[in-house]
Computed example of a mutant assay.
Amino acid sequence: MAEIVPNFSSSVKLKYVKLGYQYLVNHILTFFLIPIMLGLLLELLRLGPEEILLFWNSLYFELVQVLCSSFLVIFIASVYFKSKPRSIYLVDFSCSKAPVSCRAPFSMFMEHSRLIHKGNTKSVDFQMRILERSGLGEETCVPPAMHYIPPTPTTEAARDEAEAMIFSAIDSLMEKTRIRPKDIDILIVNCSLFSPTPSLSAMVVKQVQAEK
């Protein structure tokens, strides 16, 4: 008889478990240091001023002990500040707007679909149902390659589309922020559907260097 695995997703929201675990890992040193500091504070409050002074005078500090203690404090502080999550700020942003010629209203999309899938009414009906539930509007744009009958989704067309969208957004962003290309240390370009070689990051760097 097969063992029935309990469905934990119905009783525990794994999303919050993951967030809690991530928070614990990011602040692990804080959780360790707080009980230690509280214990020392309670012990100092329990002792009187005379006992604290007597305890201080009874300590015998050597140079090696002082150096080791200082190194330990500096090491713990360094690890603590290095492990803290760094703040990331969005200074500004810019979006690329496609030209009006790329607009694809529902009527045009369905007309192209009927011409491409001529005789296949099931496929056309399926696309119509998906289109109605997708949340897309009449101002939705598609790449120029998708306006052909039949569509021509080639690598060159995809690269031309990427260049048009990325470069226009970068130019607009640099104009708004007045940032010079040499002031940028890290460039991240992410595209889920198109990953050419050379990469999109290399394409952007080459274009920016050519414009200098």
Rank of each mutant, 00 (worst) to 15 (best):
L72Q: 05
R46Q: 11
I28S: 06
F32I: 10
V66F: 12
W56M: 13
S123H: 07
S123E: 14
L45T: 08
N120Y: 04
V124A: 07
L44K: 05
L40Y: 09
K84Y: 00
E111K: 09
R103W: 09
S58P: 06
S107F: 03
N120E: 12
I36D: 01
F32G: 01
C102Q: 15
T121C: 02
L115Y: 00
S87G: 09
K82E: 10
L29V: 11
K118N: 05
I28L: 12
L33Y: 03
T30Y: 04
S87Q: 12
S101V: 14
G39V: 06
F93E: 14
M37R: 01
A77I: 06
G48N: 14
K84C: 03
F75Q: 06
L53E: 14
S123L: 10
F55M: 10
P99Q: 07
C95S: 14
C102D: 15
L115T: 05
S78W: 14
V64K: 15
I34V: 15
K118A: 04
F31K: 03
K97F: 15
R86I: 09
S107E: 15
Y80I: 00
A77K: 04
E51H: 11
L42Q: 07
V73Q: 10
I28F: 07
E51Y: 03
F106Q: 00
F61G: 03
L54E: 15
L67Q: 12
Y60T: 13
L47A: 09
G39T: 09
L44W: 10
F109L: 04
D125G: 07
E111N: 14
H112R: 15
E111S: 14
L38V: 13
L54C: 03
S107Q: 06
F106L: 13
K84E: 02
S107G: 01
V66M: 11
S83N: 14
A77S: 11
E62C: 14
V124D: 07
L115W: 00
I116L: 12
H27R: 04
V124P: 05
I28W: 13
W56A: 13
R103P: 01
P35H: 07
R103N: 10
C68S: 13
S96N: 05
P99V: 09
L45E: 04
H27S: 01
L29G: 03
S58Q: 14
I76V: 15
S94P: 04
S94D: 08
C95T: 10
N120H: 10
F32L: 13
L38P: 01
F55W: 02
L33P: 00
G39R: 06
L41M: 06
F31E: 00
P35W: 06
F61K: 03
L47M: 13
T30E: 01
Q65R: 05
